[in-house]
């Protein structure tokens, strides 16, 4: 798979970032090499290997009892936010959904 200009633009959109022309070129080369490496890995015969979703495949997730705990103080959290008002996080207007 070739990482072309269109793929880079799509990735920019997904990551919500804007790249310069030079960055696009550099990243496209780098990503190409990374994807190339993964393609190389895909040549390994994995017919008899079951898929892995976590590195520690033998372990399983621990469960927690359903007991509420106190969280953070609102003022402390909102003081760290870029913008807040009346106890809410304030963000640029969004209309989707």
């Amino acid at each position: 798979m070739k990482i072309d200009a269109r793929t880079i633009t799509h990735l920019e959109k997904l990551a919500r970032i804007e790249l310069t022309a030079q960055e696009r070129e550099r990243l496209s080369e780098q990503l190409d090499r990374i994807v190339g490496y993964v393609e190389q890995l895909q040549e390994v015969d994995t017919t008899d290997v079951s898929p892995t979703s976590a590195v520690t495949h033998q372990a399983h997730t621990q469960l927690r009892a359903d007991e509420p705990r106190k969280g953070l103080e609102r003022d402390a959290i909102l003081s760290q936010a870029p913008d807040a008002k009346d106890g809410y996080f304030r963000v640029p207007k969004v209309i989707e959904r």
Partner: peptide
């Protein structure tokens, strides 16, 4: 209908003051 959230201990109570049931 659980007392605490899916992945943390914050309360799930409906209708509380905004941003009072949150954690890291």
């Amino acid at each position: 209908q659980t007392k605490s959230k899916m992945f943390c201990g914050c309360s799930t109570r409906f209708g509380s003051a905004p941003n009072t049931q949150v954690c890291p």
